[in-house]
Design a protein around this nucleic acid. Structure first.
Length: 283
DNA sequence: ATTTTCCCCTGCCGGC
DNA sequence: TGCCGGCAGGGGAAAA
Protein backbone atom coordinates (compact mmCIF):
# COMPACT_ATOMS: atom_id res chain seq x y z
CA UNK A 1 0.00 0.00 0.00
CA UNK A 2 2.09 2.87 1.10
CA UNK A 3 4.77 3.71 -1.40
CA UNK A 4 6.97 6.79 -1.47
CA UNK A 5 4.19 9.38 -2.05
CA UNK A 6 1.99 7.91 0.67
CA UNK A 7 4.81 7.81 3.20
CA UNK A 8 5.88 11.31 2.23
CA UNK A 9 2.32 12.59 2.76
CA UNK A 10 2.24 11.13 6.25
CA UNK A 11 5.74 12.43 6.94
CA UNK A 12 4.74 15.99 6.16
CA UNK A 13 1.69 15.79 8.37
CA UNK A 14 3.61 14.36 11.30
CA UNK A 15 6.34 16.91 10.79
CA UNK A 16 3.75 19.66 11.13
CA UNK A 17 2.06 18.20 14.17
CA UNK A 18 4.62 16.28 16.14
CA UNK A 19 8.14 17.47 15.32
CA UNK A 20 9.64 19.27 18.29
CA UNK A 21 7.40 17.42 20.71
CA UNK A 22 8.45 14.86 23.27
CA UNK A 23 7.10 11.34 23.47
CA UNK A 24 5.37 11.04 26.83
CA UNK A 25 4.93 7.30 26.51
CA UNK A 26 5.04 4.50 23.97
CA UNK A 27 2.78 1.46 24.17
CA UNK A 28 3.31 -1.65 22.07
CA UNK A 29 0.10 -3.61 21.62
CA UNK A 30 1.45 -6.16 19.16
CA UNK A 31 5.00 -7.34 19.94
CA UNK A 32 5.38 -8.51 16.34
CA UNK A 33 5.60 -4.86 15.33
CA UNK A 34 8.90 -4.43 17.09
CA UNK A 35 12.15 -5.64 15.59
CA UNK A 36 13.90 -7.10 17.50
CA UNK A 37 10.88 -8.30 19.39
CA UNK A 38 11.21 -6.76 22.84
CA UNK A 39 8.27 -4.46 23.48
CA UNK A 40 9.24 -3.48 27.02
CA UNK A 41 12.71 -2.38 25.96
CA UNK A 42 11.27 -0.51 22.97
CA UNK A 43 8.77 1.37 25.13
CA UNK A 44 11.41 2.24 27.70
CA UNK A 45 13.81 3.61 25.11
CA UNK A 46 11.22 5.92 23.56
CA UNK A 47 9.63 7.32 26.70
CA UNK A 48 10.57 10.93 27.29
CA UNK A 49 12.47 11.40 24.03
CA UNK A 50 12.19 14.48 21.87
CA UNK A 51 11.42 14.15 18.18
CA UNK A 52 13.64 16.53 16.25
CA UNK A 53 12.17 15.82 12.84
CA UNK A 54 10.46 13.25 10.67
CA UNK A 55 12.57 12.08 7.75
CA UNK A 56 11.85 9.64 4.97
CA UNK A 57 14.08 7.39 2.98
CA UNK A 58 12.37 5.19 0.45
CA UNK A 59 9.32 3.81 2.20
CA UNK A 60 10.84 4.16 5.66
CA UNK A 61 9.64 6.93 7.94
CA UNK A 62 12.23 7.93 10.53
CA UNK A 63 11.64 10.01 13.61
CA UNK A 64 15.00 11.51 14.49
CA UNK A 65 15.28 11.75 18.25
CA UNK A 66 17.62 13.68 20.47
CA UNK A 67 21.14 12.36 21.08
CA UNK A 68 21.36 10.92 17.58
CA UNK A 69 18.92 8.13 18.17
CA UNK A 70 15.87 7.42 16.06
CA UNK A 71 12.70 5.50 15.47
CA UNK A 72 12.25 3.85 12.08
CA UNK A 73 8.82 2.76 10.86
CA UNK A 74 7.75 0.76 7.84
CA UNK A 75 4.06 0.42 6.97
CA UNK A 76 4.50 -2.47 4.53
CA UNK A 77 1.14 -3.45 3.04
CA UNK A 78 -1.59 -2.24 5.35
CA UNK A 79 0.08 -0.08 8.00
CA UNK A 80 -1.33 3.33 8.87
CA UNK A 81 -0.18 6.14 11.11
CA UNK A 82 -3.02 8.20 12.49
CA UNK A 83 -2.46 11.45 14.35
CA UNK A 84 -5.11 12.81 16.68
CA UNK A 85 -4.91 16.04 18.65
CA UNK A 86 -6.19 14.27 21.74
CA UNK A 87 -6.61 10.74 23.05
CA UNK A 88 -9.12 9.00 20.77
CA UNK A 89 -12.45 7.91 22.27
CA UNK A 90 -11.60 4.32 21.56
CA UNK A 91 -8.56 2.41 20.43
CA UNK A 92 -8.45 2.28 16.63
CA UNK A 93 -9.17 -1.07 14.99
CA UNK A 94 -5.98 -3.07 14.41
CA UNK A 95 -3.92 -0.73 16.60
CA UNK A 96 -0.43 -2.20 17.07
CA UNK A 97 1.28 0.61 18.94
CA UNK A 98 0.51 4.03 20.36
CA UNK A 99 2.76 7.05 20.93
CA UNK A 100 1.42 9.65 23.32
CA UNK A 101 3.03 13.06 22.95
CA UNK A 102 3.61 15.73 25.58
CA UNK A 103 0.90 18.01 24.15
CA UNK A 104 -1.74 15.32 24.53
CA UNK A 105 -1.72 14.33 20.87
CA UNK A 106 -1.51 10.67 19.92
CA UNK A 107 0.04 8.77 17.03
CA UNK A 108 -1.49 5.33 16.47
CA UNK A 109 0.13 2.67 14.29
CA UNK A 110 -2.57 0.38 12.92
CA UNK A 111 -1.95 -2.61 10.70
CA UNK A 112 -4.45 -5.41 10.04
CA UNK A 113 -2.02 -7.57 8.17
CA UNK A 114 0.76 -7.10 10.71
CA UNK A 115 3.60 -6.84 8.19
CA UNK A 116 4.58 -3.38 9.42
CA UNK A 117 7.66 -3.01 11.60
CA UNK A 118 9.29 -0.52 13.96
CA UNK A 119 12.96 -0.28 14.95
CA UNK A 120 14.63 1.74 17.64
CA UNK A 121 17.77 3.17 16.09
CA UNK A 122 20.74 3.73 18.37
CA UNK A 123 23.13 6.63 17.83
CA UNK A 124 26.03 6.12 15.45
CA UNK A 125 26.18 4.87 11.92
CA UNK A 126 27.56 1.44 12.68
CA UNK A 127 25.18 0.90 15.57
CA UNK A 128 22.24 1.88 13.41
CA UNK A 129 23.30 -0.44 10.64
CA UNK A 130 23.49 -3.30 13.13
CA UNK A 131 20.07 -2.56 14.60
CA UNK A 132 18.35 -1.93 11.33
CA UNK A 133 20.35 -3.01 8.31
CA UNK A 134 19.51 0.17 6.49
CA UNK A 135 18.55 -1.91 3.51
CA UNK A 136 17.78 0.75 0.97
CA UNK A 137 19.59 2.30 -1.94
CA UNK A 138 19.19 5.83 -3.21
CA UNK A 139 15.82 7.48 -2.63
CA UNK A 140 13.82 7.95 -5.82
CA UNK A 141 13.34 11.67 -5.17
CA UNK A 142 16.95 12.31 -4.24
CA UNK A 143 19.19 14.18 -6.71
CA UNK A 144 21.49 11.18 -6.51
CA UNK A 145 18.94 9.11 -8.40
CA UNK A 146 19.72 9.93 -12.00
CA UNK A 147 19.22 8.45 -15.45
CA UNK A 148 22.85 7.49 -15.34
CA UNK A 149 22.63 5.74 -11.97
CA UNK A 150 19.57 3.83 -13.15
CA UNK A 151 21.35 2.84 -16.34
CA UNK A 152 24.25 1.46 -14.36
CA UNK A 153 21.91 -0.50 -12.12
CA UNK A 154 20.05 -2.05 -15.06
CA UNK A 155 23.11 -2.83 -17.10
CA UNK A 156 23.47 -6.50 -17.92
CA UNK A 157 20.45 -7.49 -15.87
CA UNK A 158 18.19 -10.16 -17.32
CA UNK A 159 15.34 -9.90 -14.84
CA UNK A 160 12.18 -7.99 -15.73
CA UNK A 161 12.66 -4.24 -15.50
CA UNK A 162 9.59 -3.98 -13.31
CA UNK A 163 11.14 -6.25 -10.72
CA UNK A 164 14.32 -4.23 -10.83
CA UNK A 165 12.66 -0.88 -10.18
CA UNK A 166 10.77 -2.52 -7.32
CA UNK A 167 14.13 -3.55 -5.83
CA UNK A 168 14.67 -1.03 -3.04
CA UNK A 169 18.45 -1.37 -3.31
CA UNK A 170 18.32 -0.07 -6.88
CA UNK A 171 15.88 2.75 -6.21
CA UNK A 172 14.05 3.23 -2.94
CA UNK A 173 10.39 4.20 -2.78
CA UNK A 174 8.85 2.73 -5.93
CA UNK A 175 6.15 0.13 -5.31
CA UNK A 176 3.74 -1.79 -7.47
CA UNK A 177 1.43 1.11 -8.33
CA UNK A 178 4.01 3.66 -9.34
CA UNK A 179 6.09 1.03 -11.13
CA UNK A 180 3.17 0.28 -13.46
CA UNK A 181 2.40 3.95 -13.98
CA UNK A 182 6.01 4.89 -14.68
CA UNK A 183 6.57 2.02 -17.11
CA UNK A 184 3.48 3.08 -19.02
CA UNK A 185 4.66 6.66 -19.25
CA UNK A 186 8.06 5.49 -20.41
CA UNK A 187 6.38 3.14 -22.91
CA UNK A 188 8.37 0.20 -21.68
CA UNK A 189 6.86 -3.24 -21.24
CA UNK A 190 7.22 -4.33 -17.61
CA UNK A 191 8.65 -7.71 -18.66
CA UNK A 192 11.49 -6.21 -20.69
CA UNK A 193 14.86 -7.44 -19.38
CA UNK A 194 16.50 -4.58 -17.51
CA UNK A 195 19.65 -4.74 -19.59
CA UNK A 196 17.69 -4.64 -22.86
CA UNK A 197 16.56 -1.03 -22.42
CA UNK A 198 18.24 1.54 -24.61
CA UNK A 199 19.88 4.56 -23.04
CA UNK A 200 16.98 6.70 -24.18
CA UNK A 201 14.48 4.31 -22.66
CA UNK A 202 16.30 4.29 -19.33
CA UNK A 203 16.29 8.09 -19.27
CA UNK A 204 12.60 8.13 -20.09
CA UNK A 205 11.95 5.62 -17.35
CA UNK A 206 13.90 7.68 -14.87
CA UNK A 207 11.90 10.77 -15.76
CA UNK A 208 8.65 8.83 -15.61
CA UNK A 209 9.40 7.48 -12.14
CA UNK A 210 10.09 10.99 -10.90
CA UNK A 211 7.04 12.39 -12.65
CA UNK A 212 4.59 9.84 -11.27
CA UNK A 213 5.99 9.99 -7.72
CA UNK A 214 5.89 13.78 -7.77
CA UNK A 215 2.27 13.71 -8.89
CA UNK A 216 1.45 11.15 -6.21
CA UNK A 217 2.92 13.42 -3.55
CA UNK A 218 1.08 16.44 -4.95
CA UNK A 219 -2.31 14.74 -4.56
CA UNK A 220 -1.62 13.04 -1.25
CA UNK A 221 -1.07 9.48 -2.43
CA UNK A 222 -3.35 6.73 -3.73
CA UNK A 223 -6.36 5.62 -1.64
CA UNK A 224 -8.19 3.01 -3.66
CA UNK A 225 -8.34 0.67 -0.70
CA UNK A 226 -6.95 1.01 2.78
CA UNK A 227 -4.44 3.81 2.55
CA UNK A 228 -5.29 6.87 4.58
CA UNK A 229 -3.08 9.77 5.57
CA UNK A 230 -2.26 10.76 9.15
CA UNK A 231 -5.60 12.56 9.43
CA UNK A 232 -7.54 9.57 8.13
CA UNK A 233 -8.03 11.38 4.82
CA UNK A 234 -7.83 9.97 1.33
CA UNK A 235 -5.39 10.79 -1.40
CA UNK A 236 -6.35 11.53 -5.01
CA UNK A 237 -3.87 9.52 -7.07
CA UNK A 238 -6.27 6.61 -7.62
CA UNK A 239 -8.29 8.92 -9.88
CA UNK A 240 -5.21 9.67 -11.95
CA UNK A 241 -4.10 6.10 -12.61
CA UNK A 242 -3.24 5.60 -16.27
CA UNK A 243 -3.12 1.80 -16.35
CA UNK A 244 -2.89 0.45 -12.82
CA UNK A 245 -6.08 -1.42 -11.84
CA UNK A 246 -7.60 -0.56 -15.20
CA UNK A 247 -7.70 -3.94 -16.87
CA UNK A 248 -10.22 -3.99 -19.71
CA UNK A 249 -10.41 -0.22 -19.94
CA UNK A 250 -9.07 1.76 -22.91
CA UNK A 251 -5.52 3.03 -22.78
CA UNK A 252 -5.56 6.80 -22.17
CA UNK A 253 -3.11 7.26 -25.06
CA UNK A 254 -4.28 4.90 -27.80
CA UNK A 255 -7.57 3.36 -26.58
CA UNK A 256 -6.21 -0.19 -26.80
CA UNK A 257 -7.55 -2.42 -24.02
CA UNK A 258 -5.31 -2.48 -20.98
CA UNK A 259 -4.03 -5.90 -19.96
CA UNK A 260 -3.22 -7.45 -16.64
CA UNK A 261 -0.73 -10.19 -15.91
CA UNK A 262 1.88 -11.22 -13.41
CA UNK A 263 5.38 -9.79 -13.62
CA UNK A 264 7.96 -10.27 -10.88
CA UNK A 265 5.27 -11.99 -8.81
CA UNK A 266 3.13 -8.87 -8.75
CA UNK A 267 -0.12 -7.99 -10.41
CA UNK A 268 0.86 -5.82 -13.37
CA UNK A 269 -1.05 -3.61 -15.80
CA UNK A 270 0.11 -2.32 -19.15
CA UNK A 271 -1.03 -1.22 -22.60
CA UNK A 272 0.00 -3.87 -25.14
CA UNK A 273 0.26 -1.29 -27.91
CA UNK A 274 2.10 1.53 -26.15
CA UNK A 275 4.31 -0.93 -24.30
CA UNK A 276 5.08 -3.70 -26.80
CA UNK A 277 6.61 -6.82 -25.34
CA UNK A 278 10.00 -7.65 -26.59
CA UNK A 279 11.76 -10.94 -26.40
CA UNK A 280 14.95 -10.68 -25.17
CA UNK A 281 18.45 -10.99 -24.41
CA UNK A 282 20.11 -7.81 -23.36
CA UNK A 283 22.74 -7.92 -26.11
C1' DA B 1 25.98 -12.39 -8.05
C1' DT B 2 21.53 -12.86 -9.73
C1' DT B 3 17.11 -14.76 -10.21
C1' DT B 4 13.24 -17.27 -8.46
C1' DT B 5 10.33 -19.17 -4.98
C1' DC B 6 8.39 -19.22 -0.73
C1' DC B 7 6.87 -17.15 3.35
C1' DC B 8 5.09 -13.82 6.68
C1' DC B 9 -0.30 -12.19 8.09
C1' DT B 10 -5.27 -10.90 7.68
C1' DG B 11 -9.22 -9.25 5.11
C1' DC B 12 -11.94 -9.28 1.26
C1' DC B 13 -14.01 -10.65 -3.02
C1' DG B 14 -15.80 -13.67 -6.53
C1' DG B 15 -17.18 -18.20 -7.78
C1' DC B 16 -19.41 -22.37 -6.91
C1' DT C 1 -26.10 -18.24 2.50
C1' DG C 2 -21.60 -20.42 3.23
C1' DC C 3 -17.25 -22.13 2.22
C1' DC C 4 -12.92 -21.87 -0.33
C1' DG C 5 -9.42 -20.37 -3.23
C1' DG C 6 -7.13 -16.57 -4.82
C1' DC C 7 -5.52 -12.09 -4.39
C1' DA C 8 -3.71 -7.75 -2.14
C1' DG C 9 -0.05 -1.84 -2.48
C1' DG C 10 5.39 -4.73 1.50
C1' DG C 11 10.05 -7.06 1.98
C1' DG C 12 13.27 -10.80 3.55
C1' DA C 13 15.28 -15.46 3.53
C1' DA C 14 16.33 -19.46 1.25
C1' DA C 15 16.83 -22.08 -2.77
C1' DA C 16 18.18 -22.64 -7.50
Amino acid sequence: MPELPEVETIRRQLQDHAAGRAIRSATVIDPLLVDPEDPADFERRLAGRHVREFRRTGKYLIAELDQGEGLALHLRMTGQLLWTAAEPDQVAPYARAVLRMDDGSVITFTDPRRFGRAWFLPAGRAERARAWGGRTGVDAMSPAFTGRSLEQALQGRTAAVKGLILDQRIVAGVGNIYADEALFRARVHPRTPGGALSGAEVRQLHRAIRDRLRMGIAVGGASFDRYRDAHGGRGGMQDLFLVHRRRGEPCPRCRTTIEKGVVAQRGTYWCPRCQPEREGDPC
